[in-house]
C-alpha cells in the first residue's frame, strides 16, 4: 500500500488507456507519454500494461507502507527519499518500508511517471485503470491521504520487458478540454468552463505569473531551483504531420511556415498552441466526426489544438492534420516553440 503524502496539482493513475470504446463516446485516456511509462514499467519488471502514476510539474510524495522497487521516468526532477536526495541504481530505487519518496518539481519536461513493481492495483474500468479527466471515468485524481494498493503480479511477467521500437508507443500513446476547440455540441460554452476548472491547465489557476514563462502559475515559481525550471521552458519541438482529413478547409502552407508556442492552457485533453491564426478558405459548419489522437483541430479563432489522450471522441471543428507522435508533447512546457513538418 502507498499513502499519498503530497498529491501535487495533478497526479493521476495511468496505463495504456481504454481503446475500443470510442464509438460509445469513451475517450482513450492513458499516459500522455506512453514511452516514459513503458520504460518505468520495464525497469521494475512490470508488463507494459501495468498502471503507474503520472505526476504534473510539481511532482508528488508517496509513503510506501511496505518495501517496494520503484522507477521514475519522464520529466527531469529531483528525487528524495526521506528528505535526502537519492540516485536510482540501474534505474530503480529500493524504497524501505515506511519511507517517503518525493518526486520534485520538473526541471525539464512536465510529467514524471512512477512505476512500482507489481503495478497499482486499482479497479479496472472498461479495461483500463486510467483516470480520464474529460469524462471522469477511472479513479479520481490523487488527493493527500489517498491509499493506493500495489499489485502482487510483477513476478509473473518475467524480468525485463523489451522496450520496443519508439514507434510502438505511437498508436497507444496517449489534458480536460480547453473550452472552444472541443466539440461541445451537447454542452456548449458551459462544458468548456467546466473543462478548464477540472483539467488543471498547465498554467495553474491563481497567483502571480513568472516573467519567464507566459502564464506560468505563481505558486509554481517560489523555490530557488525554479529559476532553472523556468529557463528550461523554451524548448523547440518539431512535429511530423500527416495532412488531412480537412486540410482543404485551410491554406496548409500556413501551418508549416508558422511557429507556435505551447499555451499554459494545455492539459491532458489537448496541447493548445498560440501563434499566427490559421485562416479558413472554406466556410460553413462541419458536422461532428470522429477524431484521432494527435489530430490538429482548428476552432473558429484559428489557434490550433492538438488532441492528446483525454480527447473527445468526436469533434465539430475541422482537423487540418494529424501529428504522428504526440508523446513528446507530454513534456512540452508552456512557452516551448512548435514547428510542423509535412509527412507523406
Amino acid at each position: 500500500m502507498i499513502t499519498v503524502v503530497r498529491a501535487g496539482p495533478l497526479t493521476t493513475i495511468q496505463d495504456q488507456g481504454r481503446s475500443g470504446y470510442a464509438h460509445l463516446g469513451v475517450p482513450r485516456s492513458g499516459a500522455l507519454d506512453q514511452w516514459a511509462l513503458r520504460r518505468a514499467n520495464a525497469l521494475v519488471g512490470n508488463p507494459p500494461h501495468a498502471a503507474g502514476l503520472e505526476t504534473t510539474l510539481l511532482g508528488c510524495a508517496l509513503r510506501f507502507e511496505r518495501a517496494a522497487v520503484v522507477a521514475v521516468t519522464g520529466a527531469t526532477a529531483v528525487l528524495k527519499l526521506d528528505k535526502l536526495p537519492v540516485t536510482p541504481r540501474d534505474g530503480v530505487i529500493e524504497v524501505p518500508a515506511g519511507s517517503v519518496l518525493d518526486i520534485g518539481r520538473a526541471a525539464r519536461g512536465v510529467r514524471s511517471y512512477v512505476a512500482v513493481a507489481g503495478g497499482l492495483d486499482v479497479e479496472l474500468v472498461l479495461g483500463s485503470r486510467s483516470t480520464d479527466t474529460l469524462s471522469g471515468l477511472g479513479p479520481p485524481k490523487l488527493t493527500d491521504g489517498t491509499s493506493l494498493p500495489i499489485g502482487d503480479e510483477s513476478g509473473q511477467f518475467g524480468p525485463e520487458v523489451e522496450f520496443g521500437a519508439r514507434d510502438e508507443g505511437r498508436r497507444d500513446a496517449a489534458v480536460r478540454a480547453a473550452s472552444r476547440a472541443v466539440d461541445n455540441s451537447a454542452g456548449g460554452a458551459a462544458a468548456g468552463a467546466r473543462a478548464v476548472d477540472d483539467g488543471a491547465p498547465l498554467g495553474g489557476s491563481a497567483g502571480s505569473v513568472s516573467p519567464d514563462v507566459p502564464g506560468w502559475a505563481g505558486e509554481a515559481a517560489a523555490a530557488p531551483e525554479d529559476q532553472e525550471a523556468t529557463a528550461a521552458g523554451g524548448d523547440h519541438i518539431e512535429l511530423g504531420v500527416w495532412l488531412g482529413p480537412r486540410d482543404d478547409w485551410f491554406d496548409a502552407n500556413e501551418l508549416f511556415s508558422s511557429e507556435y508556442q505551447v499555451s499554459p492552457m494545455s492539459n491532458r485533453v489537448g496541447c493548445r498552441l498560440s501563434g499566427a491564426a490559421l485562416p479558413r478558405i472554406k466556410t460553413g459548419e462541419l458536422p461532428s466526426e470522429g477524431v484521432v489522437l494527435g489530430a490538429i483541430q482548428v476552432p473558429a479563432d484559428g489557434q490550433p489544438l492538438i488532441f492528446l489522450a483525454d480527447h473527445p471522441t468526436t469533434g465539430g471543428y475541422p482537423v487540418i492534420g494529424v501529428v504522428d507522435d504526440v508523446n513528446g508533447l507530454a513534456q512540452a512546457r508552456p512557452g516551448s516553440t512548435v514547428r510542423f513538418r509535412a509527412l507523406d
Binding site: S19, R171, P287, S288, E289, G290, V291, V292, T313
Partner: peptide
C-alpha cells in the same frame, strides 16, 4: 480495426 466511430456524415476507422 481498433475503433469504428461513426459521425454525422462520416465513419472513422482508427487503428
Amino acid at each position: 480495426v481498433i475503433d469504428i466511430v461513426p459521425g454525422a456524415r462520416t465513419l472513422l476507422l482508427d487503428g
